[in-house]
């Protein structure tokens, strides 16, 4: 039985296989309408989400499966004090696969110790969000036609932004990747991420102003400064508007730049940018559903892993 807690749980070949399967399902949706018939996905969301939960549910429904679950801790026995492990043990009796989001880091790792069905980490606090990373990889591959030899700018909250950490870990596996880290001093990437980039031999540089580096980028990955990651409201208000992408800032950028964002956005991308063909973030949302279909099949169907 396989789980997905961290993007590095998958080999580069497995990631490529999932991305190819996503493309195959997208090209021939009729061939996969019954692929997960009689299978049930449980979405255990101890923390609110729009895209991640609904994309998982849409993905399973489009594969012919069904879904059950809850969308906040208040709507589950967690409100009565039940532990994550007891909840997962229970839900494993009802469902064939579990996608879980939890505000505490490492909650899916606790789930894996007791589960009888595959666990997908749909976000654990500020730690990992591997299905967002698969979404990002599919988007980048579709937008650029490759996953190697490019310069990726990551902008905004690089300290608490779990999507940034997972994306760096994933892209560092490919050849010729350079990172440009654009953030205020307070929100720089953690040391372990810097160490990871060094270990993988990636080039990286840091910048405080988007304008100084935007012309170098093939990908600009914008992130939200997340209120829930701050202990202090004053710090949140001071930093949230530091890095706002506008049409003016895009003038020196490359014509083939792709702008990604895990969404939801607050103020960091002006709505005026949406009409720019380089804005890829709504195409990215669609990739999220398609790659989750492929992941569900990868975890539930041994043939997709070359095991049967």
């Amino acid at each position: 039985m396989r789980h997905l807690l961290n993007i590095t749980d998958l080999t580069v070949d497995e990631v490529d296989g999932i991305l190819k399967l996503a493309d195959e399902i997208t090209a021939h949706p009729d061939d996969y309408r019954e692929a997960m018939r009689y299978k049930k996905l449980a979405t255990l969301f101890f923390e609110p989400s729009t895209r991640t939960r609904l994309s998982f549910e849409a993905a399973m429904l489009e594969l012919g499966g069904s879904v059950l679950g809850f969308s906040s801790a208040d709507a589950s026995s967690t409100a009565k004090g039940e532990t994550v492990t007891d909840t997962v043990r229970t839900v494993g009796c009802y469902a064939d696969i579990i996608a879980m989001r939890h505000p505490k880091e490492g909650a899916p790792m606790a789930a894996v110790q007791v589960t009888t069905v595959p666990i997908i980490n749909a976000g654990d606090g500020g730690h990992n969000h591997p299905t967002q990373t698969l979404t990002d990889l599919l988007t980048i591959r579709r937008e650029k036609g490759r996953l190697s030899n490019m310069t990726i700018g990551l902008c905004g909250d690089l300290k608490f932004g779990r999507t940034v950490h997972s994306l760096i870990a994933a892209m560092a596996q490919y050849e010729g990747i350079s990172f440009v880290l654009i953030s205020p001093q307070e929100l720089r990437v953690p040391q372990y991420i810097e160490r990871l980039m060094r270990e993988k031999g990636c080039r990286f540089s840091e910048a405080e102003r988007m304008e100084d580096v935007i012309d170098q980028l093939d990908i600009l990955y914008m992130t939200r400064v997340q209120r829930e990651r701050f202990f202090n409201e004053a710090d949140y208000i001071r930093l949230r508007d530091s890095y706002i992408l506008t049409p003016e800032k895009l003038i020196p950028a490359r014509k083939d730049l792709s702008i990604l964002h895990p969404l939801p956005r607050v103020t960091e991308i002006s709505h005026k940018v949406d009409a720019d063909p380089r804005a890829s973030y709504f195409r990215q949302v669609l990739c999220g559903k398609q790659v989750r279909k492929a992941l569900i099949m990868f975890l539930l169907d041994p043939k997709q892993r070359g095991e049967a």
Binding site: V84, T85, K104, E105, G106, M109, D124
Partner: peptide
Amino acid sequence: KNPRCITSVEPEL
């Protein structure tokens, strides 16, 4: 010691 870690709220782990 990480207050955001699941072990901080579920001591039986």
